[in-house]
């Protein structure tokens, strides 16, 4: 049902794939995130469970995963967007789901992805942090910890 309406609305700009567990993966380009998410919200997906980010370092891309749920039809969809690691930028979905602000702040802090349109991307968990975004795969946590918090031998 959603498959058809998405296909009708967006044509070949999005790719929908059904997973084995009956949930749906929707792959989309960065410029179509906001239209797609607002379309999903109007077609019964009224709950944003979370947004997360995956660092595909070999492919030099971040993958943002928007996890949406519908209480009415009891279905879950994952909207997946790939952005380049060099200039990670994607449109904010705060106009559609207000709760996204917190998740976007966290991803901005932990991965350094910039969300255009979210004007509250201030630090949320880390305090007085001066290093690179810590959840990136090329961040060496052990080296950073040894240098900053010091190691005493013996």
């Amino acid at each position: 049902m959603i498959l058809e309406s998405i296909g009708k609305r967006f044509g070949d700009k999005v790719k929908v794939k059904e997973r084995r567990d009956g949930k749906f993966d929707i792959y989309v380009n960065p410029d179509m995130v906001l239209p797609l998410i607002s379309f999903l919200k109007t077609s019964k997906f009224d709950h944003l469970t979370f947004i997360t980010c995956v660092d595909w370092i070999k492919e030099k891309e971040f993958e943002l995963v928007y996890n949406l749920f519908s209480y009415e039809i009891r279905k879950e969809v994952f909207v997946k967007v790939r952005v380049s690691r060099e200039k990670p930028e994607v449109e904010s979905i705060v106009p559609v789901y207000e709760i996204a602000e917190t998740y976007e702040r966290e991803i901005h802090e932990m991965f350094g992805v910039y969300f255009a349109g979210n004007d509250n991307l201030t630090p949320i968990f880390l305090e007085d942090w001066k290093g690179p975004p810590p959840m990136r795969k090329d961040f060496n946590a052990l080296e950073y910890s040894n240098e900053k918090y010091e190691v005493k031998n013996g």
Binding site: P134, A141, S145, E150, K152
Partner: peptide, 10 residues
């Protein structure tokens, strides 16, 4: 937490 980026060691 010896290798955590945000936890002190000593």
């Amino acid at each position: 937490y010896y290798d955590s980026y945000n936890v002190i060691n000593h």
